[in-house]
Computed example of a mutant assay.
Amino acid sequence: MKKTIKGKRNHTIAVEDIGEGKPLVFLHGWPFDHRMFEYQYNYFLPRGYRIIGVDLRGFGDSDLVIEEYSYNELADDVKSVMEELQLEEAILVGFSMGAATAVRYMARHQSYGVQKLILISAAAPQFVKRPYYLTGWKKADITQVIEQIQINRPKMIQDFVKQLFHEKPYAVYRDWLINTALKASSYGTLLSAIMMREEDLSKDLEKITVSTLICHGEKDQICSYQLTEEMSQLIPQNLVVPFKKSGHAIFHDETDKLNRTMLRFAQK
């Protein structure tokens, strides 16, 4: 069932809420929407889980709020969803930018309603290199992506999607992801890229108090596998599972392994 939930700025947050049982709350990556998790939805629904897919602001069917775009605001949107749906003991699942949003949510809202956390290809603790931080993209490269969004967003998305995979996908699947990304607000895509370039989640990771599963592809070209070492050092209770045959898009490259790994963790 599709629902719209009001955020604190009186904007609407689009949510798909289907099934019954223990809730799994999914936060998508940049520049997609909740539909990117369809193979996880198909796997968990018949196993007795409630699936809640959230479109982050400016993506999918959610409103864009241009006055403020930050991980704080995205985390507050997630809080609005958790409160409106009265979720308790949920498993929060984030991919890439969605994983970074989940990290900020856990720190900013003290794990409200969340029993366990799953971080997939997380863009954390930081997405770009800095003088004191040598893992990630060069700031100039992200700035170039931001410039491309402003002059040729379809080409930028096409180039980005090509970098996601280690196992080359069928063209029709790649095109489906591209079309999903094209549905997003152009300005929301730009604002979220600026957000990822500027924000630091190092201190947030230290505040995570629930058991956390970290899934990451060893061939990831978007968020280096090196990030897992930093996350595992900062998150008190964590389990790192490497995906040897995966790039950034674990949900495609090793779908079965990802689903089985998530299920084992959920059942513990």
Score class of each variant (00 low, 15 high):
Val172Pro: 00
Lys3Val: 01
Leu64Cys: 05
Glu230Tyr: 14
Ser192Val: 05
Lys168Asn: 04
Tyr39Glu: 10
Gly217Cys: 05
Ser202Met: 10
Thr189Val: 14
Ser224Ala: 13
Val15His: 06
Thr228Trp: 12
Thr135Gly: 00
His216Trp: 13
Glu89His: 14
Lys244Pro: 01
Lys244Phe: 10
Gln126His: 05
Glu199Ile: 04
Tyr133His: 15
Ser224Lys: 13
Ala184His: 04
Ser185Gln: 06
Glu83His: 06
Pro131Asn: 05
Asn152Glu: 12
Leu201Pro: 04
Ala193Phe: 15
Glu198Asp: 15
Asn179Asp: 15
Gly53Leu: 13
Lys203Glu: 15
Gly136Glu: 11
Lys183Trp: 01
Leu27Val: 02
Asp204Asn: 14
Gly19Asp: 06
Gly19Ser: 06
Gly217Ile: 07
Ala14Pro: 03
Lys116His: 06
Ala99Glu: 04
Gly29Met: 13
Ala122Met: 09
Arg130Cys: 03
Gly136Lys: 11
Gln148Tyr: 12
Ile235Lys: 05
Lys155Cys: 01
Gly7Asp: 15
Gly136Asp: 09
Asn10Val: 01
Val161Phe: 05
Arg104Pro: 03
Arg260Leu: 12
Ile149Met: 12
Gly29Glu: 09
Ile142Ala: 00
Glu88Ser: 15
Trp30Leu: 11
Ala14Gln: 03
Gln86Tyr: 03
Lys6Asp: 06
Tyr133Asn: 04
His34Ala: 10
Val240Pro: 00
Phe165Leu: 04
Arg197Ala: 10
Ile149Phe: 14
Thr4Asn: 11
Met97Ala: 06
Lys162Ala: 13
Val114Tyr: 05
Arg130Lys: 15
Ala181Val: 04
Leu201Tyr: 01
Ile208Ala: 08
Glu206Arg: 11
Ile214Asp: 00
Ala266Thr: 06
Ile250Val: 14
Gly113Arg: 07
Phe44Asp: 08
Ser192Thr: 15
Glu88Met: 03
Gln150Glu: 15
Tyr43Trp: 04
Glu167Asn: 10
Glu254Pro: 02
Ser185Gly: 07
Lys6Asn: 05
Gln148Ser: 10
Met106Phe: 05
Gln110His: 13
Pro154Cys: 08
Ala75Ser: 15
Arg47Asp: 02
Phe243Cys: 07
Leu191Met: 15
Tyr170His: 09
Glu229Cys: 01
Thr143Gln: 12
Arg50Asn: 02
Glu84Arg: 10
Glu38Met: 11
Tyr71Lys: 10
Gly136Phe: 08
Thr261Asp: 07
Leu191Thr: 04
Pro31Trp: 11
Gln115Val: 01
Ile18Gly: 01
Phe44His: 09
Leu87Glu: 11
Leu191Gly: 02
Ala102Gly: 07
Lys22Glu: 13
Ser111Glu: 12
Leu134Glu: 14
Ala181Gly: 11
Leu117Met: 12
Leu45His: 06
Phe265Tyr: 03
Leu134Lys: 14
